[in-house]
């Protein structure tokens, strides 16, 4: 079971802050991040990659994007 960060409706830097908070907690190897804009998707991806995480999956849906980020 992966942790989820729901950042829908929030604009930068909140989605990044929330994702980094979750990453820093250190208990999860996989995090699902929900965002509603392309900009947030780009920002969260960039921030996750800078922390050594990889973008495992990106799905687009009606409400926005569902990113799955992973750390080996």
């Amino acid at each position: 079971m992966s942790a989820t960060v729901d950042a829908q409706g929030l604009s930068c830097p909140q989605p990044v802050l929330m994702t980094l908070d979750k990453i820093k907690k250190g208990s999860d190897k996989e995090i699902v991040v929900l965002v509603d804009s392309n900009t947030s998707k780009e920002n969260v991806s960039r921030a996750a990659q800078s922390q050594g995480w990889e973008i495992a999956d990106v799905q687009e849906n009606e409400e926005g994007y569902r990113l799955t980020i992973k750390k080996d």
């Binding site: 830097p13 990044v16 802050l17 900009t39 960039r46 921030a47």
Partner: peptide, 17 residues
Amino acid sequence: SRFCTMGALRDLILFKQ
């Protein structure tokens, strides 16, 4: 590009980006 001057300074201070 999402060009933003405030964001440039904020991301540098907040995330070292």
